[in-house]
Write a protein that binds this DNA or RNA. Structure first.
Length: 113
DNA sequence: ACAATGACATAAG
DNA sequence: GCTTATGCCATTG
């Protein structure tokens, strides 16, 4: 299952509505792997640019973009275009744009499909 | 099966 | 707030 865990991550990230963001840890936790945040990040990193997965809506726990390349600029631009607001320090307010996640039945259905 | 890797998370200095 | 150290996990060579 080359797409085992990655596929799960992709499906969940695809559910993130525009204008909202979530964290790697939250994704991992929803998938039943509370400590697999690193793997989630790796999954998104290896994601092709042409993918339909809104990888830009997934950031680190502090509400900051951790990527250290030109993608960071693109990511922030995409998020701002969706309505996500950054403060002076380039941080996102979870209160404002944080994604609460899907109800369990929805997640379960995504995994089953 | 073992060692290395990585867009993380958290605690400590 | 930034840097360093440690823990965790799935994927890859």
């Amino acid at each position: 299952m080359t797409f085992g865990f990655f596929e799960q991550v992709y499906r969940l990230v695809r559910q993130v509505p525009p204008g909202q963001v979530t964290s790697y840890g939250a994704i991992a936790h929803m998938l039943g792997h509370p400590h697999a945040a690193r793997t989630v990040g790796w999954a998104l990193h290896s994601l092709p640019a042409a993918s339909d997965v809104p990888w830009q809506r997934v950031i680190n726990s502090r509400g900051r973009i951790s990527v250290a390349s030109s993608s960071a600029t693109v990511q922030r631009a995409l998020l701002e275009a969706e309505g996500v607001e950054f403060d002076a320090a380039g941080t996102v307010d979870w209160e404002r744009c944080g994604w609460t996640g899907l109800p369990w039945p929805e997640i379960e259905k995504l995994m089953a499909d």
